[in-house]
Amino acid sequence: MPWTLLFVDLLLVALHVVLRIGMGLGAAAPDLLVVALLLSARALAPGAAAWLGFALGIVDGATLPAELFGYSALVLSVLGYLAARVRPVVAEGPLFLLIYLFLGKLVFDVLFYSLTGGLVRLGLVALLIAAPASALYASVAGLLVWLTVRRAWT
């Protein structure tokens, strides 16, 4: 299971950077780093999930302007820790997983924008429109990933 998770995470990270950076899609591609973290956090201890978030945050920070480096790592490590913590209260099933991914991505965006000043700069538009839309997009993509991986496992 850990090796499979590691493989899926690497695949999602590679897809994320290739789609967003390599192919220049930017926000048109789903945030697969958050998806990878949230899915992995369901199988990891809180500390390990925080480390995973830190590692993914380093990768994400390297794709952002240098002045934002570190914020992704901070937010993702916190998110990984929290996601691993709430695992027992999240029920199984696609719908619950969808909500879990949606909320996880929403929390990430709100925290990240808050720390980097994006919330002030972009205002309510970012909070009420951009963040939920991005969260919905990522949650649907995460659900598809989860369904695919679970089918492969079974």
Binding site: A50, A66, G70, L74
Partner: peptide, 21 residues
């Protein structure tokens, strides 16, 4: 620990963070 290390990264001088990036 990961969270603490992230905080350290955030608090690093800009030049260091630019070098890391």
């Amino acid at each position: 620990m990961g969270v603490a290390l992230s905080l350290v990264l955030v608090l690093l001088p800009d030049a260091w963070r630019a070098a890391l990036v």
